[in-house]
């Protein structure tokens, strides 16, 4: 698996302008490279520091860069 080479489609416009749809950029800032549609991109992980075994088990990962727990709505709040 090559590391971080994206499949760039030559002169691919930022977003296909479908008739009847407003001319919208697919990336808010437009700063992303015009990536191939329908491809999943996983940026390559570079390990930095890791959590201690105790903290890793408690948090569900030893990699701080991967930590992203779902926020649990407090009682009464609903994300309905």
């Amino acid at each position: 698996m090559h590391s971080n080479e994206y499949h760039l489609t030559p002169n691919y416009p930022y977003a296909p302008n479908l008739p009847g749809h407003p001319n919208k950029q697919s990336y808010p800032g437009g700063s992303m490279p015009p990536l191939q549609l329908a491809h999943a991109y996983v940026p390559w992980q570079h390990m930095g520091n890791i959590f201690s075994p105790a903290e890793g088990l408690a948090r569900g990962t030893i990699f701080p860069e991967l930590l992203s727990p779902y926020s649990v709505p407090k009682r009464g709040e609903s994300n309905g």
């Binding site: 698996m1 992980q45 390990m47 890791i50 075994p53 105790a54 890793g56 088990l57 990962t61 030893i62 990699f63």
Partner: peptide, 29 residues
Amino acid sequence: LEIQRLEFTAIELNLYLDTHPNDQKALSL
């Protein structure tokens, strides 16, 4: 619990090494 903690760390590093076999630091950890 201590065994679970250490084993979890070993599993995580193992998974990382599967995709980063040349990562010296991960391997020594």
